[in-house]
Each structure stands twice: as C-alpha cells, then as structure tokens.
Design a protein around this nucleic acid. Structure first.
Lengths: 215, 215, 215, 215
DNA sequence: AATGAATGAGGGTTCATTCAT
DNA sequence: TATGAATGAACCCTCATTCAT
C-alpha cells in the first residue's frame, strides 16, 4: 500500500525498548484492532458497528483505539485498504497458475457464500463499494486499485489468447478484463443475495463465459 | 432544497399545486417523502441519512413523515420494494423485444454510471444488497424477488436458445440465468467503482459473453 | 363550580339558532370531550393521555377540542373540578341518611376497586392529588374543596355524637373529620394497590374505627 | 444546581471528593443519579421529569446516566424500590418499640407535610400508587411489598391485643392491619392536600382510632 | 362548527470522542 | 501504554398545538 497518511501517530515507542515496550507490540495492537474492526464491519456494516463493540471484540479499551487510529473513519479506511490488497492478490496473481480460472472463481464464491473468512468477505466488498459513492478519497483509492487489477487481468487475458493463437488489441483485452471484473463482483453480490446457490449450478455457464472471454 | 417546482408554501398557492383538501393529496405527499428519502439514501446511505435531512429534502416537517410512515426503517423498506420492482421489470420483461439485450444492459449501465435517475441507482442497489446481510426480513424479500427475475431470465435464455435450434435443460438455463444476474449486478458495481468507464469499452466483450450465454 | 375562567371561548352560537346550531349543542360537545378525557386520564394518567387519543375517544377531531378548551391542562383542570364535585357530594351529603356510613364507604370502595364508574375513580383521585403538589392553583382549589367537605363531615360527626349524648368541641369534631378524610383517601389508595381486597375483610375493623370516631 | 457541596468539576478537585480512580466511585455515582432522579420525580412526577433535568440535577451529562441505568423507567423502578423499602421499614419494624404508634405516625406525617426529606415523600408515594394502575409489573411489586407490611402489621396488632388480654382471629388482625394501612396512606394524602394541617389537630382522633384498632 | 394535515420543540437514547487517572 | 468514565451533539420519534380548508 502506498499509504503514508496512516502510520501510527508518530514515534510512540521512541526511547529505549523498555519492559513491556517490545518492538512490534504497537503493530500487533494495531493489527488486533483492525481484525476486530473487520469482524464488526462484516457483522454490522460500517455505520452500525460501534467503537465500543470494536473495542470489546479487540479486548482493549475504547480509548486505546485512538492511540492507533485517528478516528473511526480511519479504521474504515485501513480496513478497506487491507481488504483491497488481499482481494487483488488472490484473484489474479496468487492463483495464476494453480488451477483453471473458473475453479478459482468458484472457490472464491464458496468462500464469500459461507462468509467464514473475514479476509474474503462479500459483505465487506459490497459495503465498501457502496461507501465509495459518498467518499471521494475512498473512490479514488478504489479506482487506483481497480486499474491495477484491470491491467493484470488484461495481461492475463492477452496471454491466454495468444497461447490459443489469437491476437487481441489492447482495447479488446481491456474490455474483456472489465467484464471479468463485473463477473467477479457480480459473484460477490450473488453470494450475498442467494446463499443457497451451489457452485455446481454456476460451473457450466461460468466456464462458457470465461471461455468466451479468454478465447 | 432546490426544488422550486412544487412547494405549497405561501398562502394562496400556485394553480395546479396540490392544496390541502384535494383528493389524492395524501398519496402525493407519501410519494414526495419517498422521493426525498430515495435521494437521501442514494446520497448518504440508509444509516447515514437522517429523518431531518429527508424532511428537509421533502420540504416537510419531521413530524409529518410519521403520518405516512411508521418509522425510518419502514421508509427504507418502501424504497427497497419500489426499487426492486423497477429493476426487475426493466431488465427482463419491459425491454424484452425492443433491442438486443446487450444494448439494453449498456443503457442501464449508462444510467447507473451517470447516477442521474434515482429510480435506477447502482448505489442503492449495492447498499440494499449489503443491508440484506444484516436484515433477515429484507434478505428474504430480496431472495423472493431474485427468484422471480431468475425464472424470467431462465425462460428467456431457453427461448433464445431454442430459436437458435439448441435444447437447454432446465438446469442449464438456470445456471446461465444466474450468471446473467451476476453480470448485471457486476455492471452496477463497475458503474459505481469506475464512472469513467464508457459503454464502448464494454460492448464487444459484453456481446461475446451474452452470446455465449444465449447460444 | 365557581369557575368563571373556563366558559367556552366567547359567544360561539351567537346569531340565530340555525339548522345544526341547536342550543345546548356546544355544551353537549364539551361534555363529550370531557367524558372522553376522563376515560383517557383514568386509563393513562394526565401526562400519558394524548390529545389524539382523547379526540378519538370523543369521536371528534383534535382541532375541535381547542374550540372548547384552551389547552390540555384546561381539560385536566375541568376534569379535576368535575371529579371533586362529585366526590364531595356523594360522600357526605347525598348518602347522609340512607345507610350506615360504614356500608356507604364500603360501597364506594367497591366502586373504586372495580374501576367501573369513571365518575368515581380512585386512580384519578390519586393522580389528582399527586398533581396538586406541582400545581399551586390546583392545590388551592383542592384545599378549598377539602375544607368544605371537612366542615360537612365535622358537622355530621358532631350531630352523631350529640345523638349519642356526647358533646364534642369544634376542635374535636374537626380532628375526627380529618381522620375520616384520611380513611376515605386511604381506602382509595388501598383499592388501587390491592384490587383483590374484599369488603368483608374491611368491614369489622372499619366499623370499629368509625364507631370510635362517631362516638 | 445549587449544590456546591460535591462538584468534581475543576481539575485538581477538593480533598475528600470522589476522584476518577477511587474504589466505590461507581456506586457513589449511581447514588448521585438516583438522588437527583428522586428529587426530580418529587418535583415533576415520573412522566414530566426529563432525563436532561435529572442529568443537570445530578451534575452529569445525559449520556452518563445510561452507564448506570438502562433506561428512564429503570430509574423509576429503582427509586420506587428504594422508596418502598424505606417506607416499610420505618413504619413497622424500626420504630416498633421506641414510641407509641400514634406519635410515630404523627412524625411521619410531619415529615410528609414538610416535604423536606426526599426519602419520605408523600408526593412520591401517591405518584407511585397512581402509576401502578398502568404498570402491571410495578403493581405486582407493590402488592408484594404491601403483603409483607400487612403481615407485619397484623402480627403487631395481634401482639398488642394479646398484651391487653384480647384474642384476635387471624382474619380480625388482618382486617385491622389493612385499615391501619389505609390510615397511613390517607395521612400521606392529607399531608399533600392540606400542608397547613398541624399534628395537634390529628392527635386526639388518631389516638382514638388506633386504640380502637389495637384494642 | 369541524376537519385532520402540518408544525416544531423537545423527549429518551446512542455513540464517537476526550480526559483524568 | 492503557483504562473506562464522562461528554455532548445528534439521532429517531412523539405530541400539544395551529391552520388551511
């Protein structure tokens, strides 16, 4: 993340490295709070989640949170940044070669549908996107992230096409990448709106669509 | 508010304006409030929108709202119902024969992207979906709606396939319909996350994908 | 009642005695409203009873009430005045000779306990007394009423004593009258606090006490 | 508020004042709020007393009250419980042997009449009784309390009678106890309705009545 | 005389944030 | 570093009262 704006206040653990002041403790605390906030945001949404609830979940006092974050919205920002990082990585880079894209998407869908992994929460993804309509800074940030992902996707689309002997223009590859993004975000929406949906139901049509895009 | 069109403010009242005793006034007021609420929900989200703000937008007193709605959440419910109705109709039934599905989707996308028509707000769609994760009643309602839309889509998919000489099983048609829903919801997400996106960018890939689904 | 302050606004039914403007209609409306208010005050208390509820109970519009009363507290005042009138009359004057005082008190108690007759409501009596601690005007009014009742009671006590050959000083008679008032108001309190209480339970002890006071 | 005695306002804080970290502070705050609420309830009644007013009287912020009580009605409940405890104790158990019952009642009456001691407020007693007509839970609670007091009174009546050589049936003793309760509650009503009443005025008749009941 | 829609002040309550310890 | 009590601005909602009809 290129976020120099959000480093923990200043130099809190400055002189010496005293008893309880082990190095890294501050970061660990910060992490605890973020984890708790993520849990709360997923459960209640950004607005309905209260600082008290986050504090309780993190097992710290409400006051302490303000040592690590300027405000609630700073936490929201941090969560969103963290979430986008993960999402991007997993989707394109990490799983590039391990399995067919379709199966990977179905895995992600399953994860979203079950809501078990806080790192991969469809609820958060939707919440975050909705929030971006009211927060210019966040919108800009998301756009930047999406562009990167888009590029990566476009490259992959192009590679796949080439490996099949086809030549795609940059614009073509870009268009297909965008539609792929639609598809992914649409799967998140579906996972939330119909948790009874099974991956088998999706597979055939999803494979066809992906094939059409990677052809 | 910057709505000089319909203010029943001064004593004599302009001609054509709904005056106290006129029939239908109650419904018009209700509508007025709903419209204001929709605007506010789009601008601020369900939670952040305040009754006072809605009242101001509707140019009525806060107290009056409670003559027409039991509570804020009743307004949310009403807005969501209204929104879902519109969405469903437009997408499948109304526009069935007028133009190619791809063009229709691109129209809807444009509408979402520009955010001009409150009746067709991507922000609201996302908000609503996110909200459904925390509101069982709403979730059930949405699920019901989605099932209907899904059925209609599946039927259309089947018809199209048959007109091309292909035979689809019910399961196949259903799967494709679901992926179509993903696509639509994904377009909403895209419209919000990248308002610079042009329909030309989407067209080619979207056409391919739709072709693959209706084949 | 010596209340010149509360006559219905001014001369509303002034010229002629037109169609619906039968004489006495205004007073009948006023009465309707008062009856409804009484019912509501007994059911909900002075503060919790709303003008809307009173209006509904009286089957008139909220606005109309303000043609007959200046404010809600004016209604409270009127109800209290009416209530005190009734109470005083019944207790001493009306039933003077018909039956033994003890039986009469037990009748009143029964009435209070069952809460059937709005004209004789223990709840209202308590509410009214409590209210008088915060309303000087009302307190004064009640005090005046109580003095009258006290006088009447004292006279009766004296008469009874004399009929038994005893001579009571004015102070003695007054003291006994006050204790009688205590007893009556205490019965109201009991009626409210223990609606399972039966008159048989009270009779013997009540008789003894009254005998001691009238001896 | 005109309470310069215990304000923890300025930074250093006077010695002997409860400072943030001290043990028992929470209970003292709770008490503080209850005392303020009691004052407000006596002055304005349960309904008319506002949380803001209570907060101001207690010299705390409105929000803080909710750290110690769930709701306004929880405060009402607490006040009522506290009040009933005091009332019951004082009346029968505590003062059993110290002085003649008559004198004790006259003391209580004086206290009520002057309205100085919030722990012994006739206004609150009436308010509370009136409230019980609309609050089933409260009514049940009061009934339970009254039964205990009634038992205690009946026992005392019986003892007194026996000490005079009389044998009372349980029913007789119970009846007399109830009438005693009437008398006490009636005195509260009188104290409110006629604050000019002097104890001398009551003494003779009250003694007679009590004698008749304890004979 | 009568309606009932409309007002708006103020009610109880919540919660992000601060501060004394 | 950490606590959690304390603050106070706003929130949703109610209701006595007014006003156009």
């Amino acid at each position: 993340m290129n976020a120099p704006a959000d480093t923990p206040q200043s130099a809190p653990a400055a002189p010496g490295v005293a008893r309880r002041g082990q190095p890294g403790r501050a970061l660990r605390q910060r992490q605890r709070i973020l984890d708790a906030a993520e849990r709360c945001f997923i459960d209640s949404g950004f607005h309905a989640a209260t600082m008290d609830h986050i504090a309780k979940t993190a097992d710290v006092s409400p006051g302490l949170i303000y040592r690590y974050f300027d405000s609630k919205s700073a936490i929201v920002r941090a969560i969103i940044e963290r979430h986008l990082e993960n999402e991007g990585c997993r989707l394109v880079d990490e799983h590039d070669q391990s399995q067919p894209l379709c199966e990977h998407l179905l895995d992600v869908f399953e994860c979203w549908r079950r809501g078990a992994d806080p790192k991969l929460s469809a609820a958060l993804l939707l919440e975050l996107t909705a929030e971006s309509t009211r927060n210019a800074e966040l919108a800009e940030f998301i756009r930047g992230h999406d562009r990167l992902v888009g590029k990566s996707l476009a490259a992959r689309v192009r590679r796949e096409a080439r490996s099949r002997g086809a030549r795609l223009t940059a614009a073509d590859a870009h268009g297909r990448a965008v539609i792929l993004q639609c598809l992914v975000e649409g799967l998140a929406s579906r996972a939330v709106r119909d948790p009874t949906l099974r991956r088998q139901t999706l597979r055939a049509a999803l494979e066809q669509v992906i094939a059409a895009l990677l052809r």
